[in-house]
Design a protein around this nucleic acid. Structure first.
Lengths: 366, 366
DNA sequence: GTGAAAGCGCTAACAG
DNA sequence: CTGTTAGCGCTTTCAC
């Protein structure tokens, strides 16, 4: 019953002022500038408010007036469920949430139905800025965000003119990992990557598709690998690259299967994420392939489960990335600021990589 | 440079209308009711908008006018980092996000600094309703939410008058688990639970504290256990109950250590969450106690990692819970609706529970 | 310490 | 199909 009086808005700041016989300014001050009133008057205002069931200034009206929504929008085009199950995305989200919390800002998850191309939600979001995380560069939602007159930060995304950016050196990091494999002696490698564009392509990705990939992170990592292996004479166009639309361990496993079925000479499986690598590991085990003796498997991200398994990978500071995005957005309103933050990564050698077996070993056993 | 023109708001609906020599209604219709204009005029409006850099109707102004914010608020008092690392909370969050996405509603995470008791963020959130997840019943943020004139749904929370609720039968579920242990022969049990109130108490929780716990879920589970064991003559006041403020496996481990150190006769450790149980398992292993031969350990929630380890637990549908909360909030505006949704749970026997060893076995080996 | 005036930018009847 | 009229509820100079 106490609730029923809350259900509709019976009172406004104006009606409260009328009831009290004071001006609206005074009531407003009672809430926003306590020092501008006598304590006694303020007490009276607040008490009358309670009596009338006035819940305090309407947030939306206040936002309109002050031109501040007190929230930042987060655009995650990827199907929400994947985001919530990808430790890297989750780490980013946590870091961003922490930054927002620290600044007293809400975090508004923009609803994006991956099926419909409904950009309306972006226009409907009452936020002071946007963070865009890992969406394809031709995503209409991204365009919609950029059309909004609020500051924006993109993460794991190609540079957009004048938009702040946070990310890592994907190319350099994966080249370092590639170099490690090259040093170990791997020349026949296969790659498992996440989706490269908005259309579903569960299968091999020709070089052309790799180069025109719309996901910056994937494109850049593939380019880094290609460059590193080209340096030692590997013809990249003959390197099998298997793409998966869904980002899951199941995808990693099926991609590994597809790749190993097609090319039995491969000595190393390079995965562009730890989640995919976890799946590849499962498939290797299923086939009775010992890792790393028979097959080297590498990942990217540095998630906890991969660490437990000793996965060879590149660790990136996902939590920091989220925090950095939040700070970038919330800190400087507009001045000449560092337009770009590149976070450091670390190569984790792990125990899932080793020198490849020679051809004889492969055929005649260890 | 294209960005610079977006940085401030150069045009408004009114200025656009003036420029075009039409009324504001017409411009508004161009965006909101395309069928109310000639296609030609609409095209002209939209094109002029682009030329002037008008980003479309301001979301906040629209919200004020339409009295719809297009977002639901989520109140998670718990330190954000814990929420993002607790699979049960994450499942709830995912379900809720899914429900919001389906309804085209944003999800606004209310920033709550656990340190400061700053309720302002709740008042500042421009949302059409709130979901409150597992906060203490005396939390000022909860009170603030209830004071807002918008519909609210609480999850894992005691009934608040007139507020919709979603949850499970915590008491019944844990009593079923207790009965299982009782049937196996356990009488000397110990309990590890999450925090019972807003103050930190890392240690034993006397019965009085258990009964007055401010976290409904914890209070109810403890009450269920107490009731089940009382029925077979166990004096609950002598049952050690260890509380931990932080919800982590580390907490579970240290609590198990504390409990086992104080009472070496305990044959079963009942944990009120899987996360805590995972920690207890670790500590048991560290001590060389075999589970379940030397010690029975049980959890609650049904998280994936627990399932992999064969943890005896109660599985609850966390994703469904989140979805249900969202639907409850978004579906019916107010009419006579089912005020409460109780989701089913399932007892998972697992492999971490067995009959206790007899006293002789305990002292003289198997 | 308090009040009057002036919108913030938009949408929704209702008339034409 | 288009325009006129009225606010939504609030904050904020700037006088008093």
């Amino acid at each position: 019953m106490a609730r029923s009086m809350h259900v509709r808005r019976p009172a406004t700041l104006a009606s409260l002022a009328a009831e009290l016989g004071v001006s609206r300014t005074t009531v407003s001050n009672a809430y926003n500038r306590p020092d501008q009133l006598s304590p006694e008057l303020r007490r009276r205002v607040l008490e009358t408010a309670r009596r009338l069931g006035y819940p305090g200034p309407d947030p939306v009206a206040r936002s309109l007036r002050t031109r501040k929504a007190g929230a930042v929008g987060l655009l995650l085009t990827e199907n929400l469920s994947y985001a919530f199950r990808d430790p890297a995305a989750l780490g980013f989200l946590e870091g961003l949430a922490l930054a927002c919390e620290g600044a007293g800002q809400g975090l508004h998850l923009v609803p994006v139905n991956p099926e419909r191309e409904d950009v309306a939600a972006v226009h409907r979001a009452g936020v002071d800025g946007f963070v865009v995380y890992s969406v394809p560069d031709d995503d209409p939602h991204l365009a919609a965000v950029l059309s909004r007159p609020v500051p924006t930060v993109v993460a794991d995304q190609p540079t957009v003119d004048g938009v702040d950016r946070v990310g890592i050196d994907d190319r350099g990091a994966i080249m370092e990992l590639a170099q490690q494999l090259i040093t170990l002696g791997h020349r026949k490698v296969g790659v498992i990557c996440m989706r490269l564009a908005r259309d579903r392509n569960d299968g091999f990705a020709p070089v052309e598709r790799q180069k025109t990939a719309h996901f910056h992170v994937q494109r850049t990592r593939l380019a880094g690998l290609s460059e590193a292996f080209a340096k030692v004479g590997v013809d990249w166009s003959r390197v099998p690259v298997v793409e998966r639309f869904d980002h899951s361990t199941a995808s990693g496993a099926s991609a590994a299967a597809q790749l190993l079925d097609a090319d039995r000479d491969v000595t190393a499986l390079i995965c562009t994420s730890d989640i995919l690598a976890l799946g590849a590991l499962t498939e290797a085990k299923r086939r009775g392939l010992r890792v790393p003796q028979d097959l080297t498997v590498t990942g990217f991200d540095g998630i906890a489960e991969g660490e437990r398994l000793g996965l060879t990978t590149v660790r990136q500071p996902v939590l920091e990335k989220g925090k950095a995005a939040g700070k970038l957005l919330l800190a400087s309103p507009d001045p000449t600021r560092p337009r770009e933050i590149t976070l450091p990564t670390e190569l984790i050698l792990g125990t899932t990589s080793a020198a490849p077996r020679t051809a004889e070993e492969r055929w005649f056993g260890p």
